[in-house]
């Protein structure tokens, strides 16, 4: 565009070129602003990638190992066993009365872990400066706080791990009642400072009501949760929980 302008009118080309440059600069600034503002437009599904994903598998001391389908499938899929063991014996879920015991133990362990973290926080003087700093702000405006941020993230992970273990520990869904497709239900939950479940509802339903029911039931059964760490300034946290059927078919 600027090229054709230059050929068409050489006399006042300098001025026009400058004008066009200014307009071009303004347009670019506008585009950049819109681009930056884009993530603020709420996506209807709210399943955009979390800025930090919770790596829960790597802390085995917090909760007991997953004794579910995969390990079983692997067991079955392996070489033939020596003894003719009927599979039903191995498939039996532990009697629920046992679970309560396990759950309590687990909670205590988690409590201990959190307590440990609390002490750590108290010990380090830098830590309390900016808990739960928003991610976007961290990128744009306050790169200096990212070290603390990472620290807080790690500490918060212990709490998320506790939530994960509690909710998973209450999720009951028999194999074989779902269709073959992979299902995903996304729920959101608001947890108050004392661990009370304030609300739990669907962000995205899977389309299978038995799957959805079991997911909501798991969250409701898992409540009340451990109290929030005291350094969480907001009175409550909001989390999303994604349930997948991949291993429940």
């Amino acid at each position: 565009m600027t090229g054709s302008m230059g050929i068409g009118s050489r006399n006042d080309g300098g001025f026009r070129l400058r004008g066009m440059l200014v307009i071009s600069f303004l347009l670019h600034t506008l585009m950049l602003s819109i681009l930056l503002a884009m993530p603020m437009i709420p996506s209807p599904k709210l399943t955009f990638g979390p800025t930090y994903s919770v790596q829960l598998v790597s802390s085995p001391e917090v909760f007991r190992p997953d004794r579910s389908a995969t390990s079983l499938a692997r067991e079955i899929g392996g070489v033939a066993r020596e003894k003719p063991v009927l599979l039903k014996n191995r498939m039996e879920a532990p009697p629920p009365i046992k679970t309560i015991g396990i759950r309590k133990e687990r909670t205590e362990e988690v409590e201990k872990a959190i307590e440990k973290l609390r002490k750590k926080v108290a010990a380090s003087s830098a830590a309390p400066s900016s808990p739960a700093k928003p991610q976007a702000q961290k990128d744009v405006a306050a790169p200096a706080s990212s070290a603390n941020q990472g620290n807080v993230d790690v500490k918060m992970q212990a709490y998320y791990a506790a939530l994960w273990a509690r909710i998973k520990g209450q999720w009951a869904l028999p194999k074989g009642i779902l269709p073959g497709d992979n299902l995903e239900a996304v729920l959101h939950a608001r947890i108050l400072g004392n661990g009370t479940l304030k609300e739990a509802d669907f962000e995205k339903r899977s389309g299978n009501r038995f799957f959805d029911d079991s997911a909501l039931k798991a969250i409701k059964k898992a409540a009340p949760f451990p109290p929030l760490p005291e350094w969480v300034r907001e009175g409550s946290i909001e989390i999303g929980i994604r349930f997948h059927s991949l291993e429940a078919r």
């Binding site: 919770v54 579910s68 629920p96 928003p134 939530l163 998973k168 869904l173 994604r242």
Partner: peptide
Amino acid sequence: AILLAGPAEAKVYIDIDSPTFQKFP
């Protein structure tokens, strides 16, 4: 844009892949 981006807190998602109980109690 910057101001709006500030308080936009990223929500944490927990993924749960398999139920603990494979039977209804």
